[in-house]
């Protein structure tokens, strides 16, 4: 019996809502959306945690401008350092941002260890930045974090939406809470993605238009908050019961 699994519920018991930002496809902006959501909720005065579970390609720290140069403090576990008032936990504190050649069983063990030893304390929201696909991380999150609600991100591409559809099918088959699909990097004003999402029987949250100035704002939370992309995100979030 792996005892670490037994203590996970206790670690998460003082968290009001847990939202996993996921997609079936890579490169669609999950980390950006997870960071935006964390920034928005923090600006609203909420206590927010952000857990980056993209263990192969962690990037939330780059978006938030965090430079994990030392280990988190310990107090009956590890305490997520505050980055712009967001309690932030990531593998990068331990991997020094080096390449991480993990296999499935390693991924599962890392997720169990992180969930077992991280002392989040009371939070209004824990946001989880998920890796792409429907592999270990998604299945382990479903298994060990039983209250996770899923916010799925897609780009306007048919290719992306095809992969996203596979993820949402699995989530629906498992009767898991699916908040909806958020369109990112929208290039035109057509409603083709919105129409397709609605055909899938899934709420369409809204669209973040492609913002050519976003890249230069990465790593600076203040600059990110002033981007057109963040403004679109705020507008899209109005349709969701997140406040």
């Amino acid at each position: 019996m792996d005892t670490r699994i037994s203590v996970i519920d206790k670690r998460l018991q003082n968290i009001n809502r847990i939202i996993a930002v996921a997609s079936g496809k890579g490169g669609v902006g999950k980390s950006l959306v997870a960071s935006f959501l964390s920034i928005l909720l923090t600006e609203q005065g909420k206590k927010v945690g952000l857990l980056d579970l993209d263990l192969y390609g962690p990037s939330s720290h780059i978006i938030l401008g965090a430079k994990p140069s030392q280990f988190p403090e310990e107090d009956k576990g590890i305490i997520p350092p505050k980055i712009h008032n967001i309690s932030f936990m990531s593998i990068v504190y331990f991997s020094e941002d080096k390449p991480s050649p993990f296999r499935g069983q390693d991924i599962t063990n890392i997720i169990i260890e992180l969930l077992a030893i991280t002392q989040w304390g009371p939070l209004d929201y824990l946001i989880i930045d998920m890796p792409p696909g429907i592999g270990e991380e998604i299945l382990d999150t479903i298994h060990y974090i039983k209250r996770a609600e899923f916010l799925v991100v897609s780009t306007p591409s048919k290719v992306a939406l095809g992969a996203v559809g596979k993820l949402t099918s699995i989530l629906q088959e498992m009767n898991l809470p699916l908040l909806g699909i958020l369109e990112n990097m929208a290039m035109t004003s057509t409603t083709s993605i919105e129409d397709n999402v609605k055909k899938m029987g899934i709420p369409y949250i809204g669209a973040i238009k492609y913002d050519s100035k976003l890249e230069t704002a990465l790593g600076d939370v203040q600059a990110l908050s002033n981007t057109e992309a963040f403004k679109d995100f705020i507008t899209a979030m109005i349709s969701l019961d997140i406040n």
Binding site: Y93, F94, K98, P101, F102, I110, E113, I117
Partner: peptide
């Protein structure tokens, strides 16, 4: 110390002592 926190990061910080592979 990193391996002490998250044991699987041994795969990040170590290499095969015989052939140098990260796998």
């Amino acid at each position: 110390e990193a391996i002490h926190f998250i044991p699987e990061v041994v795969l990040v910080h170590m290499r095969c002592p015989n052939c140098g592979s990260p796998d």
